[in-house]
């Protein structure tokens, strides 16, 4: 545990002196600002439209959470898919390329210390990313009255998705010493898990005899991130969704540990 923290804090410090971290954080802030502004303008236009058409019942239903914060955070987690691989690509791969892997593996610590240390460092980084996103809904509290619970649940979903994706990134980074390969591999994995699984279910299940309600289809659909995030964005915190984040992080961390360990036996 102590070693885990030692590795995590060293990694975090190194991350924050690397140009990659600042490029990612800058892009992330710019994208978040742009999306938030777009959501804000969209919200306003919708309001004006509803007023013009005298759709008072719909106007009454409009609120900052459902029409502004939810779509805003919902689009930010998709951006995580593309930016996060740049942050995680070096986590383990750079240790191999630097030769520092030899230091870590000859020190009195377990491979779990390395894997969890890297994971924690990545989690710390995405916490900063989530904090940047949280700044924008926080502005709304100055001028309006969004629901606190729903807003926090949305931010929590963003944080949990990002942390889960860090675990995927640790795995992508541990299979190679080449950071570019780690980047591409993580990106592909994330795009599949985050975006493509529902389509894969549709395509393959339609062609085969299995229906969309078959056990396999349901398992694969469960593996996709989308539905779990959507429920949390709506303010529903369900144990099965939390379990999704815990289980998928666990699986990828276990894979990383196995990969790092087995590399020594070759």
């Amino acid at each position: 545990m102590r070693h885990t923290l030692t590795i995590a804090s060293r990694e975090l410090r190194s991350l924050f002196v690397s140009p990659v971290a600042y490029v990612v954080l800058t892009l992330w802030s710019v994208i978040a600002g742009t999306f938030f502004l777009a959501s804000l303008i969209g919200f306003q236009e919708q309001q004006i439209q509803l007023q013009q058409y005298q759709m008072l019942d719909r106007l009454e239903q409009m609120n900052l959470n459902d029409q502004l914060i939810e779509p805003f955070i919902g689009s930010m987690w998709v951006i995580v898919l593309f930016l996060l691989p740049a942050v995680t690509m070096g986590l383990v791969a750079s240790e191999k390329a630097n030769g520092t892997e030899e230091l870590l593996l000859t020190s009195p610590l377990s491979i779990w210390d390395i894997v969890l240390g890297k994971f924690l460092a990545g989690a710390g980084f995405v916490a900063v990313m989530t904090a940047i996103v949280a700044f924008f809904p926080a502005l709304l509290f100055l001028y309006g009255e969004p629901e606190v619970g729903k807003t926090l649940s949305g931010l929590l979903s963003l944080l949990l998705v990002s942390i889960t994706y860090v675990a995927v990134g640790v795995f992508g980074s541990s299979v190679t010493r080449n950071q570019l390969i780690a980047f591409v591999l993580t990106l592909v994995l994330l795009v599949v898990i985050g975006m493509m699984l529902p389509f894969i279910v549709d395509i393959t299940m339609a062609g085969s005899g299995l229906g969309r309600d078959s056990a396999i289809a349901q398992v694969v659909a469960w593996m996709a991130t989308g539905s779990h995030v959507d429920r949390m964005l709506q303010g529903l915190i369900d144990t099965s969704d939390l379990a999704y984040f815990v289980v998928s992080s666990g699986v990828f961390l276990l894979l990383s540990k196995t990969v790092i360990e087995s590399a020594r036996w070759r």
Partner: peptide
């Protein structure tokens, strides 16, 4: 105490 052939250094530290 082990010094490998290439010293295991973190250049940014």
């Amino acid at each position: 105490g082990y010094l490998p052939e290439t010293p295991p250094l973190y250049p940014e530290m």
